[in-house]
Design a protein around this nucleic acid. Structure first.
Length: 176
DNA sequence: ACCCCGATCGTA
DNA sequence: ACGATCGGGGTT
């Protein structure tokens, strides 16, 4: 089980989003296998929060890769992202699904994950390459991954930038 | 100061 | 299909 380093998150966002499927996310006393991600890529991606430039909220996305980007959505749910690519190129991967290690509960949805694990804006801008309570390691290798359009957006739908672990591989995780 | 709207989710 | 709920960001 190897720690995913800054050089991993510095790769193209689509590569990171794809490779994070099957990796293991650790947060405080929680851990689980990532089953679903989405890529948000730079100022030319209309669905990316940073599309309209640098603001107090999107500042993290303009920073170095490997930092958490946590924001509040719809006034009640938090979403966890990990910043990707080089500094000053605003991009991130949204973590949308995790299979919890302990109880095998499948947290299928970014709001459900943050609610279940207690991830809030307090955890924004954390360096997950250096933290010892918030990091990502290698997990289940060579899983099958499907791509679809991203969920819940009205623009940028043409891109297949959502990555989902195959139903078959998710079911295997339930058996472990 | 004001207004619109959103990378969601549970309920109907 | 729809409402809850509130902060971010643009506009006046």
């Amino acid at each position: 089980m190897k720690l995913l380093s800054r050089s991993f998150f510095q790769q193209p966002t689509l590569t990171v989003a794809r490779e994070l499927i099957g990796a293991r996310l650790h947060f405080q006393n929680h851990s689980g296998i990532i089953t679903e991600t989405e890529a948000y890529i730079g100022q030319d991606d209309p669905a990316c929060h940073a599309a309209r430039g640098l603001t107090p909220r999107t500042k993290v996305m303009f920073g170095p890769p490997g930092f958490s980007y946590v924001y509040l959505i719809y006034g009640m749910y938090h979403c966890l992202n990990i910043v990707t690519e080089t500094e000053n190129f605003p991009a991130a991967v949204l973590i949308r699904g995790v299979m919890c290690d302990n109880d095998h509960i499948h947290l299928n949805g970014p709001g459900k994950l943050c609610k279940a694990w207690g991830i809030t804006k307090k955890n924004n801008n954390t360096d997950i390459c250096l933290s010892n309570h918030f990091f990502v390691t290698t997990g289940t290798p060579s899983v099958n991954v499907l791509t679809t359009p991203r969920i819940g957006i009205k623009v940028g739908i043409k891109h297949l930038w959502r990555f989902v672990m195959s139903k078959n591989d998710i079911n295997k995780l339930l058996d472990i």
